[in-house]
Design a protein around this nucleic acid. Structure first.
Lengths: 225, 225
DNA sequence: TTACATATGTTGCCCTTGCAACATACTTAC
DNA sequence: GTAAGTATGTTGCAAGGGCAACATATGTAA
């Protein structure tokens, strides 16, 4: 694939900002880029897919989305040409994507196997190198955390938010019974809901046997529904 | 301040993962760390503050929050010891924080002037160094974008979401009249709201003279209310 | 062109949920 | 200890907005 033909455009890509044409070529040789065409309505990655390439949208429009079991589609972000996406894998290699990337209009995507970059970094000292890697990793992690929060907020009902949050905590703490770091007032603020409505809905869910709780200790009883 | 006393704990901090005690000391000498105590209910940063330090929560509990003009508090994230925060400035130095960091319980925070790190990185080639900087910068940017999305979703009313979104677009495009990248159905999915309800509310807002629109071109007329 | 799928507008129903107001705990400070 | 401040639970009310159903309009495919 005639990579060089694209280089002129590359100069305008944020990822390559500050780099001269020859330097971009140099990089593309170290990390063989793949340029793929995706037709409208295709998926670049599905939630759960293993991601090992950093992606740059060259042309078209791509949406970062999250779909629930019922096909309810939530658009988290709309990506324009120049956008870098699927970058979370920089945290820990071979990370699975939590979201899907849906092609809104025919698109050109450049995929870069950048994982090596961090491994190859050689600083004055091993310590600094390691530190830098950690910084990148943490940035990626924080990103993931914000995505998790988004998954909660994008629920359209209060019950949905509560369940999304509790299931996330259960997953993160690896146990169906767990303690949350919020009091009622703060939980309401975290879920961006009314405190009294939250209390009311929690009571209902307890009645229905979906969850159980005592102060800040919750148990998710019935994951379905 | 007796930094060394803390070093034993440092070994468990994600930011210093994989580093030996002596290496941590080495880093702390290059980037003089400051350890500050914050009492409960204090703010570490207020939205709008200039941020130049990478922060690590050593002890306590800190909340990343967003407050609107009416003091409505939205907790975006609850931070536990070990968390790194205020990292967005890594994108572009002296960046202003979009969110506030509120001290939920008495906390110890280590502040690292890490901005230099990226400047000091010396790789085999200038190109690779620059690329790495760009990656970090983009990670930080994407982070910021997710935060923007969160600001929309944390609105409790549909009108609030619509306004938050439109004002964001107006700001980003630097003009009160702008085109959005969504059709109605997708805008509903982006705002996580019902499509028909969205249409209804848009019509109302047009009636009330708050906004005007024609297809995908919107104008924000009255920023207040 | 015809047929089918998808996008947009509109409207009635009614449940969920925000809001306000109040009564009880529970904290923190003095 | 008392008092002030904050957290939690409860409940009535009103309405915002989700849902379903339908009519067009626009787009896509054969």
């Amino acid at each position: 694939m005639a990579v060089k033909m694209y280089v002129p455009n590359y100069l305008e890509i944020p990822l390559f900002q500050g780099l001269a044409r020859e330097e971009i070529s140099e990089i593309l040789q170290s990390f063989p880029a793949m340029i793929k065409h995706f037709p409208k309505s295709d998926y670049i990655y599905l939630a759960g897919d293993c991601v090992e390439n950093l992606c740059v949208l060259l042309e078209g429009k791509v949406q970062m989305i999250k779909e629930d079991i019922w096909g309810e589609k939530s658009i988290i972000s709309s990506l324009e040409p120049g956008s870098v996406f699927a970058e979370n894998f920089l945290g820990s290699l071979s990370e699975r994507s939590g979201v899907s990337y849906f092609v809104a209009t025919d698109s050109e995507v450049m995929m870069l196997p950048l994982g090596k970059l961090l491994a190859d970094v050689s600083l004055q000292s091993r310590a600094l190198r390691r530190l830098l890697c950690n910084v990148v990793s943490i940035l990626a992690d924080n990103n993931t955390r914000l995505l998790e929060k988004t998954e909660i907020l994008c629920q359209r009902t209060l019950r949905g938010k509560i369940l999304a949050y509790l299931e996330q905590e259960a997953r993160n703490q690896g146990c169906n019974e767990f303690t949350i770091p919020f009091n009622r007032t703060d939980l309401a603020n975290y879920l961006d809901a009314d405190r009294s409505a939250l209390t009311r809905e929690l009571a209902r869910m307890k009645d229905e046997g979906i969850i159980d709780y005592e102060k800040n200790t919750f148990t998710v009883l019935d994951v379905d529904n």
